[in-house]
Write a protein that binds this DNA or RNA. Structure first.
Length: 484
RNA sequence: GGUCCCGUGGUAGAGUGGCUAUACAGAGCUCUGCAAAAGCUUGUACAUCGGUUCGAAUCCGGUCGGGACCUCCA
């Protein structure tokens, strides 16, 4: 029923849970040093749709974990004393680097949670959102195990992973075929500050640097104060919270290498498992108006930016769902507008159907997704295809509004689809607040219209339009809607 | 340098060796006093040059163009 593209095999494979009573999904979450931008949003919306499809189409319970990286170069840099990134809402900085880091990252973590929620991602769907700094012990244990197994070494106050030793016993490059002989000249290789045996080795534990936050770490009877390397947190947390192997591990394409490759290596080396995850799924990047999003091109948008411009986050979610997750998506303001219109139309259909079905609220309504829609979702999350089938379904049921039972059935189907898409609401059409002056004008026009005084009726319509309202004539009365 | 991806109608974007989505925008119609909303109808696109094939936009190769990754950017 479900099949997903697996980066491990570079092909679409049928998805069978390791344990049908609980599908374990681990998603690489944000580094909380700033608010989410469009690219982040795409990644989060992708994972959300994935876990929803596993639940709704696959019918499996899900344990979804998304980590919060609250310790890394950027969070340290931006939370350090005198940083321009420090915001007044965070309060005063202290002289304790670790406390500053904590305050700083907690601030952006709560911003992040808010961002997720306005994008239609429900906190209830998370099993846990672990913070890296709360799993330091587990990471240290893993690092010791890796060193004990002969795949790690300490050098100059840091601890490294020995890729060459590992590659002798295991396969390195399962997610991403690297070609060490052909590293392009000019590619930045940050070998200057640390002393690695080989350039392909990566850091497990970074030695303490001047005023940075640090943790003590006992390795082979020696204390090595420092902080965890980037990859180790995901290895440790996926194991401790979900247990290995997990079903699906997700992230952006850029994480295939080195992050995921190294996570995987650490798990195999330290936990002695064959695999960290059965499926590795990666979402493609996003372009803005045909160009890679970047600050220098001036097309770098955060969710807050778009909200300030007056865009509804659910329209943004819908626009992000317009393309397949493995294809580069060209996000444009035209496409956002198109998404908004399309989404609003379906929302109006839902409200009409609620009226037709005589329901105030269809939140609890259950129904079956049209089979071809479910098929599309299950086929490596082909959301564009699912949307196309949904529109066809709606077209075929356009005349259902005269039949309450049929209306209810379509509503149920839409509800099931929305359990995956999460862009519509099934509660009553919100009442519009109509100012008395407008109401008076409308009443006057209705009277003029009833008296077939077209000239006056038209004059009043124009007046209403100029005041920002659309008056729609019905059989037995009118409705007013604000112009948007 | 290496590895890899992509190029579809005005826009966004699926799909597929033959039946050529879907949405938004546009056009026409129905309904409306006129509108709005809604519904219906409509658009033959797949970079380019070759090849394979009865048949290719879909497979193969060349070319052109765009992009990604190659040690901490989703």
């Amino acid at each position: 029923m479900l099949s997903f593209y697996n980066t491990l095999t570079k092909s679409v494979e049928p998805f069978e849970p390791l344990n049908a009573s609980c599908v374990k999904i681990y998603s690489c979450g944000p580094t909380v040093y700033d608010v989410a931008h469009m690219g982040n949003m795409r990644a989060f919306v992708f994972t959300d749709v994935l876990q929803r499809v596993v639940r709704e189409v696959g019918g499996y319970p899900v344990r979804w974990v998304m980590n919060i990286t609250d310790i890394d170069d950027k969070t340290i840099r931006d939370s350090s004393q005198g940083s321009e990134k420090w915001r007044s809402e965070m309060g005063e900085q202290s002289s304790d680097a670790k406390a500053n880091l904590r305050t700083f990252t907690l601030f952006f973590e709560s911003e992040f949670r808010r961002d997720l929620q306005v994008l239609g991602i429900s906190m209830e769907h998370f099993y846990q959102m672990p913070r890296a700094t709360e799993y330091i012990d587990d990471m240290q244990t893993l690092i010791r195990d890796i060193v004990d197994a002969g795949y790690g070494y300490a050098s100059e106050g840091s601890v490294y992973f020995n890729v060459a030793a590992y590659a002798k016993d295991y396969s390195y490059g399962r997610l991403f075929a690297i070609d060490a002989e052909n590293f392009r000249e000019g590619v930045r290789i940050d070998a200057d500050e640390y002393d690695r045996e080989s350039v392909s080795d990566f850091v497990l534990w970074k030695g303490r640097k001047d005023s940075e936050p640090y943790w003590d770490f006992e390795l082979d009877g020696e204390n090595i104060p420092g902080r965890p390397g980037w990859h180790i947190e995901c290895s440790a947390m996926s194991k401790h919270i979900l247990g290995l192997p997990i079903d699906i591990h997700t992230g952006g394409v850029d994480l295939r290498f080195p992050h995921h490759e190294d996570e995987l290596a650490q798990c195999c080396a330290g936990y002695h498992v064959d695999e960290q995850a059965r499926f590795w799924m990666h979402n493609e990047f996003l372009e803005i108006e045909g160009k890679k999003m970047s600050k220098s091109l001036g097309n770098f948008y955060t969710l807050r930016d778009l909200e300030k411009m007056g865009h509804n986050p659910l329209d943004i979610r819908f626009a992000l769902l317009a393309g397949h997750y493995r294809a580069v998506l060209n996000f444009t303001f035209d496409s956002l507008q198109a998404a908004s219109t399309a989404r609003t139309r379906v929302q109006n259909i839902i409200w009409d159907l609620l009226d037709a079905a005589g329901l105030d609220d269809a939140t609890g309504l259950t129904g079956a997704m049209p089979p071809d829609v479910a098929l599309a979702f299950g086929n490596d999350l082909n959301v564009p295809q699912a949307l196309a089938r949904m529109h066809e379904y709606l077209g075929a049921n356009a005349n259902v509004k005269s039949d309450p039972d049929a209306a209810r059935e379509v509503l149920g189907a839409l509800k099931a689809i929305n359990n995956v898409l999460a862009v519509w609401t099934f509660t009553k059409r919100p009442a519009v607040n109509i100012p008395d002056a407008i109401r008076t004008l409308a009443d006057q026009r209705w009277a003029a219209r009833s008296a077939k005084d077209w000239a006056d009726a038209d004059r009043l319509r124009t007046e209403l339009t100029n005041s920002g309202w659309t008056m729609k004539d019905g059989k037995d009365g009118y409705t007013l809607e604000p112009l948007s």
